[in-house]
Design a protein around this nucleic acid. Structure first.
Length: 205
DNA sequence: GTCGAGATTATCT
DNA sequence: GATAATCTCGACC
């Protein structure tokens, strides 16, 4: 099955909602994606590619349908699906999902996780649960250990501001976070970390 | 349930 | 030297 090269060659904002409900297999572990976030690359202040190509984000400039992994906060690995044609930086961050295959293995990797819903609730946890590491960066998502199956129909989806993104423009301006409404595996992080815009102060609840 | 602060290191300026 | 697409834990409601 042609894993729709054309599909992944679109901008990440187009690809992101369609990834909801997709099944990502890594070895024997299968994840149903429930939450993603789109990054547009050089025109997106929140993107790693905003300041141009570097060593870390090289994979994001690579061919679509591949994996882009990066290390952040000194201890966390996160995974993206590369979008847009080769040479254009764009990606979809996998934020959360539900482990539906080889749950025992995923649970073994996630010792701190208490319930199944917690196994992949968050970008870094998702990678741990699936066993994705930096070494998997640049891997084709339709070969080797990886396989990505898109849902036949688009899942219901809700969108909102991205979380955890700092820098200029905040990125509340970019409502490019997509998730499946009501799914228990969607990350509960509604807290905005940095400078939160306080609209007014005249009480008003 | 929500909110707030600290930890910890690869990558880039 | 500063930054970061985060997580965990503790306090409070």
């Amino acid at each position: 099955m042609v894993l729709d090269r054309e599909f992944f060659a679109q901008p990440s904002v187009e690809v992101a909602p369609r990834l909801l409900g997709a099944l990502l297999s890594v070895d024997d572990t299968v994840l149903r994606i429930t939450e993603v976030e789109a990054y547009l690359g050089e025109v997106d202040p929140g993107s790693h590619a905003f300041r141009g190509r570097g060593n870390r984000n090289a994979a994001m400039y690579g061919p679509p349908g591949h994996l882009y992994t990066y290390f952040t906060y000194g201890m966390h690995t996160c995974a993206n699906v590369v979008c847009s044609p080769e040479g254009v930086a764009s990606g979809v961050l996998l934020r959360a999902g539900e482990v539906v295959g080889a749950v025992a293995q995923a649970r073994a990797r996630r010792l701190t996780s208490k319930s199944d819903a917690d196994l992949a609730r968050g970008p870094a946890l998702l990678c741990v649960a699936l066993g994705i590491t930096l070494a998997d960066g640049g891997a084709d998502l339709d070969s080797g250990r990886f396989r990505l199956d898109l849902p036949a129909a688009q899942s219901p989806c809700e969108m909102g501001p991205r979380t955890g993104v700092s820098g200029p423009g905040g990125s509340a301006e970019y409502p490019w976070r997509f998730w499946i409404p009501g799914d228990p595996t969607v990350s509960p992080y509604k807290r905005h970390r940095p400078s939160r815009v306080e609209p007014v102060e005249t009480s008003e609840r």
